[in-house]
């Protein structure tokens, strides 16, 4: 199934493809170099790597300076994701119930706004809260809540676009059959968007896990999240430990998100015929 665009652009096809590969190398080469340096058997980060060894992976996995931050990040990300999923899904369902298009647009913009929020400025603001309310700065409360705000737009966007694909007549049908709104929510809408909610949760988790700026400002003294540990390592002791750790979390993220995307696409393909609605 060749894209007719190829026919349209005719002779421009070859330079475009060559340029695309060149641009693609910008995306790929840094990661390849990073992975390569992590399997070195030498003591230094060098490219090309000297020999092959997985000793740096073993070293990271056995080093509490890496594993402690990892588990802390898991906890923070899970908590922030839970909040983001709950509120983002709720918001996406609510936006589809707003009658006036102007209000709907406004709320939609608000929910997507955190994507555009400059993280350092936001972190400084949250940092001030930690300072103003003593006791908070020894806890992770503000960090978790802040990360939830940053992750919420991803959940909102995904669930909201899933709601766009749901036949609006389903709700009307359910209500003419006597179902109250909590029942429609529980029996009709949530089951339909549940796969998307799960996808959104995993994306949100990945966003929070990778997010470093809030950690820089909000992690209590003496503790580190995983990205913060990576950042410190990059600025202080640039060793193959860092690239090994980076490779591991990246591969884990790629595997997780890859599976979610493939499964999601397969499901969407299976469902498509139901949603074909002809209009007059």
């Amino acid at each position: 199934m060749k894209n007719p665009l190829a026919g349209v652009i005719g002779g421009f096809r070859y330079p475009v493809v060559v340029l695309s590969v060149a641009i693609g190398l910008l995306l790929f080469v840094p990661f390849a170099v990073l992975v390569a340096t992590s399997v070195t058997s030498g003591q230094l980060i060098l490219f090309p790597p000297q020999g092959f060894s997985l000793k740096w992976y073993v070293s990271v996995l056995g080093d509490r300076a890496w594993t402690d931050p990892f588990w802390l990040s898991m906890g923070v990300s899970l908590a922030a994701t839970a909040i983001a999923v709950l509120l983002g899904t709720s918001g996406a369902l609510a936006v589809h119930r707003i009658v006036r298009p102007g209000v709907g647009r406004l709320v939609r913009t608000l929910f997507i706004l955190p994507i555009a929020l400059p993280p350092v400025a936001y972190a400084v603001g949250l940092h001030r809260i930690n300072i103003l309310f003593e006791g908070l700065n020894k806890s992770l409360v503000v960090l978790v809540l802040g990360e939830a705000i940053i992750a919420m737009p991803y959940v909102f966007v995904l669930v909201s676009s899933a709601m766009n694909r749901v036949d609006p007549a389903l709700r009307l049908a359910a209500s003419t059959m006597g179902a109250s709104w909590p029942m429609i929510l529980r029996r009709v809408e949530l089951p339909i968007v549940l796969p998307t909610v799960i996808t959104g949760a995993i994306f949100a988790f990945s966003v929070v896990f990778d997010e470093v700026v809030l950690s820089v400002f909000l992690t209590p003294p003496g503790t580190q999240t995983f990205p913060l540990a990576m950042l410190s390592a990059a600025r202080e002791a640039f060793s193959p430990n860092l690239t090994a750790a980076s490779t591991m979390v990246s591969l884990a993220a790629l595997a997780l998100l890859g599976i979610v995307t493939v499964v999601g696409n397969r499901r969407a393909r299976g469902r498509r015929p139901v949603r074909k609605v002809s209009s007059t």
């Binding site: 049908a173 359910a174 209500s175 003419t176 006597g178 339909i192 139901v274 609605v277 002809s278 007059t280």
Partner: peptide
Amino acid sequence: QKRNVGFVFQSYALFP
């Protein structure tokens, strides 16, 4: 919810 009518929608609106 309280009118007890049956409604067949153009798209049928079957719950997928």
